[in-house]
Computed example of a mutant assay.
Amino acid sequence: MSRLPPLRALQIFETVGHCGGISQAAKRLNLSVGAVSQQMKLLDEALGMSRTVKDGQRLRLNAIGQRFHARCSTAFEELRAAVAEVERSKNPNNLYVSGLPSLMNKWLGPLIYEWQHEHDDLDIYLDGTLADTSEEENADFRIGYGEPVQYAERSVVLFHDCVVPACSPALLGQPGTVGQAADLLQHPLIRVDSRPKFDSPPSWVEWFGLEGGVVEQTIAVRRSFSSASMAIQAAIDHQGIVLAQYSMIARDIAEGRLIIPWPRAMALPSPYYLSWHPNTLQKAQCRAFQRWLIGRGKAQEDMTERLILALPDLPES
């Protein structure tokens, strides 16, 4: 096995790479410029080559230095995550929930305040990630979409969702400007495209297909986002009309930041689910959280059903 360079030198190299120079890294690390330079020299000697080049007054990474820095950064992030996990484990009164980033941001994030207000002695860690929960992550719960990859036997359906068009009230101007679905094409359309990392929600083409008629204008979508939360924020900022999941915009609609300009909902093909680690329910706070979150999921599904029932029946085109 190859001998690893000194860990301290690697740590300082990572910081130098992020800062783009020795003096900036020295300030961040609260070290002298000479101490940083010495560690950089030690790393060069350990590796048998330099990973930097001078660019005027700045120091930049050469090609192999950039690749080496990327791997070092990933390794240190893993170490930091491992240390954070150990710190969390020191307190048995904690709760670790992993989930899809936009759902965590737009749905669970606002709700969790309600939970923590009633359990103010708990340390709660919310981890927004597309990756499914694994044995190594050791999350108590995972909120995912579709079929659970891990712990299928310890999973329940949380809720079914739908997508509806949504935009800022200011975007449309005068009331009554949308007389048919095709009128939405007079405004910029925003889409969510998270492929290949994750299945994307229904497209505008699929949604317009529900109308049963032919849309004469071309369905042009000029702005795409990899996450639903970014797309929804763009709609809130008057940048266009987004085809959004109702669970993620219900609060924005209730508080007047968004409206539904045309009353047509399209169901998602799969539900959101909640799964948990084999040891999760040994903790009392996790059992209580599971009951609470399943209840919130049922409430969300009821809201979605009420929305669909409240939308008027549209005439066949």
Results as ranks from 00 to 15, higher is better:
residue 292 W to V: 10
residue 220 A to I: 11
residue 92 P to I: 02
residue 228 A to Q: 07
residue 79 L to W: 12
residue 131 A to H: 14
residue 31 L to H: 11
residue 5 P to S: 01
residue 152 A to K: 14
residue 157 V to Y: 07
residue 87 E to V: 15
residue 283 K to T: 02
residue 169 P to T: 00
residue 264 R to C: 01
residue 151 Y to C: 09
residue 77 E to S: 14
residue 297 G to P: 08
residue 40 M to A: 02
residue 276 W to C: 03
residue 291 R to C: 08
residue 310 A to D: 14
residue 278 P to R: 02
residue 86 V to Y: 14
residue 246 Y to A: 09
residue 37 S to T: 13
residue 107 W to N: 02
residue 195 R to H: 15
residue 212 G to L: 08
residue 26 A to T: 10
residue 255 E to T: 15
residue 3 R to P: 06
residue 190 I to E: 00
residue 63 A to C: 07
residue 271 P to F: 08
residue 211 E to F: 02
residue 159 F to A: 05
residue 292 W to S: 12
residue 218 T to H: 11
residue 67 R to F: 06
residue 244 A to S: 13
residue 215 V to T: 14
residue 154 R to L: 05
residue 202 P to H: 09
residue 114 E to P: 05
residue 24 Q to G: 09
residue 168 S to V: 01
residue 126 L to D: 05
residue 171 L to A: 00
residue 219 I to G: 10
residue 128 G to W: 12
residue 70 A to N: 13
residue 299 A to M: 06
residue 78 E to Y: 11
residue 155 S to E: 02
residue 22 I to P: 05
residue 305 E to Q: 14
residue 206 E to I: 03
residue 279 N to I: 03
residue 193 D to G: 04
residue 151 Y to A: 12
residue 125 Y to P: 02
residue 45 E to M: 10
residue 295 G to I: 00
residue 196 P to T: 02
residue 213 G to F: 10
residue 138 N to Y: 07
residue 116 Q to F: 08
residue 315 P to K: 07
residue 23 S to W: 08
residue 220 A to P: 04
residue 42 L to I: 10
residue 290 Q to C: 12
residue 68 F to S: 14
residue 258 L to I: 01
residue 80 R to W: 13
residue 262 W to I: 00
residue 229 S to H: 15
residue 211 E to T: 02
residue 237 D to T: 05
residue 223 R to S: 05
residue 252 D to M: 06
residue 9 A to V: 06
residue 111 L to G: 08
residue 260 I to E: 00
residue 314 L to S: 03
residue 185 L to M: 06
residue 105 N to L: 08
residue 304 T to E: 10
residue 306 R to P: 00
residue 38 Q to M: 13
residue 6 P to W: 01
residue 153 E to F: 07
residue 73 S to W: 12
residue 243 L to R: 09
residue 211 E to N: 04
residue 245 Q to A: 11
residue 143 I to G: 03
residue 203 S to Y: 05
residue 73 S to F: 12
residue 200 S to A: 15
residue 273 Y to H: 13
residue 42 L to E: 15
residue 316 E to Y: 06
residue 25 A to V: 09
residue 248 M to D: 11
residue 217 Q to S: 14
residue 134 S to E: 02
residue 113 Y to G: 09
residue 138 N to T: 08
residue 182 A to W: 04
residue 258 L to P: 12
residue 202 P to G: 10
residue 50 S to L: 11
residue 150 Q to A: 15
residue 217 Q to H: 04
residue 128 G to R: 10
residue 270 S to V: 05
residue 284 A to G: 05
residue 91 N to Y: 01
residue 18 H to C: 10
residue 117 H to R: 13
residue 250 A to P: 03
residue 195 R to N: 07
residue 177 T to H: 00
residue 15 T to W: 02
residue 161 D to F: 01
residue 286 C to F: 01
residue 245 Q to Y: 02
residue 203 S to T: 15
residue 225 F to L: 04
residue 10 L to Y: 12
residue 104 M to G: 07
residue 17 G to W: 13
residue 246 Y to N: 04
residue 249 I to S: 09
residue 296 R to W: 07
